[in-house]
Design a protein around this nucleic acid. Structure first.
Lengths: 151, 151
DNA sequence: GATGAAAACTTTCCAAC
DNA sequence: GTTGGAAAGTTTTCATC
């Protein structure tokens, strides 16, 4: 599924401000409001656009502690198993299987260190997890995505 | 800056669909549309809400290759130096200084492996970078934020 | 925080390219 | 197959209570 130039500019405009009006976006890309709406509708139907969300300051939501947990899993653990296991944790905002020593990298937001520790211990206790290695975020330097609420 | 229960429910509704109408959200939380708008305006003014964005399927945008790069920096490199250095790369969607061996973890989206390699080499060549260690994402299992366009 | 009216925006339809 | 314009329906916005 490839997007043409006009579509990309529309998506770019929405990425900057998803509540911008279709008329505004149209002016930006040289289209009328209905034409922009039709393209956005099509992009949603195709799955290129999966939704609209709010960009939140995690601290304001009470998520002050962030960290990455590397997962080392038991043999024969499938990506689907990991996904199933982790999806129950609202604190997990992202997880991926990766190349290298670890099997997966999990990004976690917690309210404080105690909360982070509790989540880490529960994840480490999952049946498919052999061991974990975690690092805490000291300062978030760059965040070019709309960090949705982890709950 | 702490949010009360009503604010959290409004933010939660916007996180699910940022283009939902204020009347809809009001019905959900038991407020009139203008009352919801006033709270959203206040949350934006306070910085709790930093904006609205679109959730995109990275593959549809042509970003098929994802990876994490651990940065080991020269002595006396400040977080601000790292931030400055990395902000010029549109491929970098997130970066944080962390505890542990590495100084920072950088998340990168690239169009393909060749593109990823090029970005990796350029970052590794930055003056403040001593060495890097990178892992590639095999399958994205969970993504609970609106991954904005990395450009 | 609610109400109500005016302005703006969204959405549909249809003719035109 | 996609566009722009007009009309109808919603939503946003603001003054007022």
């Amino acid at each position: 599924m490839r997007l043409n130039d006009l579509d990309e500019r529309i998506v770019h405009a929405l990425a900057e401000d998803a509540r911008r009006s279709y008329a505004d976006i149209g002016e930006l890309v040289g289209l009328s409001a209905p034409a922009v709406k039709r393209r956005v509708d099509r992009l949603r139907a195709e799955g290129a656009i999966t939704g609209f969300t709010v960009r939140v300051d995690p601290a304001a939501m009470g998520w002050e502690t962030e960290g990455f947990i590397e997962l080392f899993c038991r043999h024969k653990t499938s990506p689907a198993d990991i996904r199933r296991g982790l999806s129950r944790y609202p604190e997990v905002v992202s997880a991926s299987t990766v190349t290298g020593d670890a099997d997966a990298i999990v990004q976690v937001f917690a309210s404080d260190m105690r909360h982070f520790e509790r989540v880490l211990e529960r994840i480490a206790g999952e049946a498919f997890v052999e061991r974990t290695k975690s690092v805490l975020v000291l300062s978030p330097l760059l965040r070019r995505f709309g960090s949705g609420t982890p709950s």
